[in-house]
Nucleic acid binder design. Structure first.
Length: 522
DNA sequence: TTCCGACAGTGGGGTCGCAAT
DNA sequence: ATTGCGACCCCACTATCGGAA
């Protein structure tokens, strides 16, 4: 199959906003890929989902700058493109960067204009065609003549879409496809997509949301599980005898980097296991260390550095134990099993129907230095890959009134707007200390307003960033402070987002860097 | 007819490893 | 030795479509 066929499809996806029309485009190109055989389906399904088959190519957004102009006529096949990226991904050692760039230039030179757009999107990871994995799964279902749920479930259990697309589209009939899909089951050693949580502003809201959903039959005061939310990295651990594998949230295998987790799981009383949890670094008193330290420890491959801190695993769910799949069992049942098989490494929780008790647990765990809680429906199954309503996280929220120091131009649907704002706190000398940036929390109306407003405050414009007279106050919400070498105050806001612009306050009334410092040293 | 679940998009800070400078 | 880039860890929030109610 020609790569240009995929580029054409991608262009048609960009051209329509209708998801049904997008799905029709995807179905069409998937069917044509199927005619070319399983290898074409494998590559095309990846590309339509916005990914290369190679997890790391060494090429990124920055490398795309110096690419040559387009070819006039299409010539590349999807297999040739895949082979080119496989070659680039395999390069290492001195001279490899140069060689990789040369290979990329050759590839781009052979690509037409729309093919170049697709290549760029795949390399940068920003395809912007309004359709990624979820819509692709729907299209696979339609192309294979099977229910969308069957395809989705197979993909969640396989931990990937490519293999599922190949299986479904390689089938001779819808019945055959259905059977092939149903053969994707939870397998020890193959990670599933982790279940995700929605968020709520406070525990009472989270509890109310869960009981409202469970309360179709108006059961009064349904019980909920209130799990401690740890500020570490998500881990999914598979054990088959002495063979233990540790995967991250994106299903990356990090087993070699975390021997202490492997050892901890080997000591548990079960032969086969699939556990879902969090790993973090603790201090001498057993309190959690800052996330940055956990991140540092879990990212390093250097043995000496790794020895400087230990990760402790805590589990909050079990998907499999000794031949028994628990995905469809209610949480209540899974937790009973978890407590038996993972005893010293289970996340602290309370189970209650009393919102006050739930709130009290939240206060206690935050006081103990933890990130917050996740409130869960007791009867819900494990919904792999879904940000279901059955899990709702709650974290403390801080706010500050800061001054907008500068603003950057937006891109994509925000192009033409001033979008990403630079945030500063007052210092004692009458100046401002930058604490980070944010683009979050802005409605279209706010974007329109600030685009005009910041033009009024413009002091300089370098073509990307507009520097402002420091007059506009904005109320910012954030999760906490982290150490920073990038910003002059030594702090940066974590997960900053705009709540509202404050026209009732002048810059002289904004919060000070001293107030911020006090937050950092409780 | 209205409501709401799910998804894609728009980017944030920090950390590491690696190759180039 | 330092710098820049790529990859990946954590992530919040809004707009939109189309099925559910």
């Amino acid at each position: 199959m020609l790569f240009d066929d995929v580029a054409d499809a991608s262009g048609r996806l960009v051209a329509t906003r209708s998801r049904l029309a997008k799905r029709a485009v995807l179905v069409d190109v998937l069917r044509r890929a199927a005619a070319g055989g399983p290898e074409d389906v494998a590559i095309v399904s990846r590309y339509l989902g916005g990914e290369l088959r190679q997890r790391r190519t060494g090429l990124g957004w920055r490398s795309l700058g110096g690419m040559p102009g387009p070819a006039v006529a299409p010539s590349l096949t999807v297999q040739a493109v895949d082979a080119a990226f496989a070659h680039m991904a395999g390069l290492a050692g001195p001279g490899s960067s140069t060689e990789r760039l040369e290979a990329a230039r050759a590839l781009f030179a052979a690509a037409t204009e729309r093919e170049q757009r697709l290549l760029g999107g795949l390399v940068s990871g920003e395809l912007r065609q309004g359709a990624l994995d979820a819509l692709l799964l729907d299209a696979v279902a339609q192309a294979a003549g099977v229910p969308a749920d069957a395809v989705r479930r197979a993909a969640m259990l396989a931990g990937e879409t490519e293999a599922v697309a190949v299986a479904a589209l390689g089938a001779d009939s819808p019945e055959d496809a259905r059977a092939t899909l149903d053969a994707f089951t939870l397998t020890v050693g193959r990670p599933v997509r982790p279940m995700l949580a929605q968020s709520a502003p406070d525990v009472a809201t989270a509890v109310a949301e869960l009981t409202a959903r469970a309360g179709a039959t108006a059961v009064p005061a349904a019980e909920v599980v209130v799990d401690t939310k740890l500020d570490g990295i998500r881990i999914q651990v598979h054990r088959d005898g002495d063979d233990v594998r540790v995967y991250t949230r994106s299903l990356d295998d990090v087993t070699a980097r975390v021997p202490e987790i492997v050892a901890a799981v080997r000591a548990l009383p079960a032969r086969t296991l699939v556990l879902d949890g969090e790993a973090l670094a603790l201090d001498a008193e057993g309190r959690p260390r800052p996330f940055q330290e956990t991140a540092s420890r879990s990212a390093t491959r250097d043995a000496d550095l790794a020895a400087s801190a230990t990760l402790t695993p805590y589990f909050f769910d079990v998907l499999h134990v000794d031949g028994w799949d628990l995905l469809d069992a209610p949480l209540r049942e899974r937790l009973a099993v978890l407590d038996q098989v993972a005893a010293p490494h289970v996340v602290e929780r309370v189970v209650t129907s009393d919102a006050t008790v739930a709130s009290e647990h939240f206060r206690a765990v935050v006081a103990a230095g933890q990130e917050g809680v996740v409130v869960k429906a007791t009867e819900a199954p494990y919904e792999a890959g879904r940000r279901g309503a059955a899990w709702v996280k709650v974290k403390p929220r801080h706010t500050l009134d800061l001054v907008v120091l500068a603003v950057e131009r937006g891109s994509g649907r925000r192009s033409g707007r001033l979008s990403n704002i630079h945030l500063g706190a007052r210092d004692s000398a009458g100046g401002f200390v930058m604490l980070g940036k944010t683009f979050k929390g802005m409605t279209d109306e706010m974007l329109a307003w600030q685009t005009e407003r910041f033009r009024e405050l413009e002091a300089a414009d370098d073509g990307w960033t507009v520097t402002l007279r420091p007059e506009q106050v904005v109320e910012i919400a954030f999760d906490g402070l982290q150490r920073s070498t990038r910003y002059p105050g030594g702090f940066a806001l974590r997960f900053a987002r705009v709540l509202r612009y404050r026209d009732d306050k002048s810059a002289a009334e904004a919060d000070t860097i001293d107030a911020v410092r006090e937050l950092a040293t409780p």
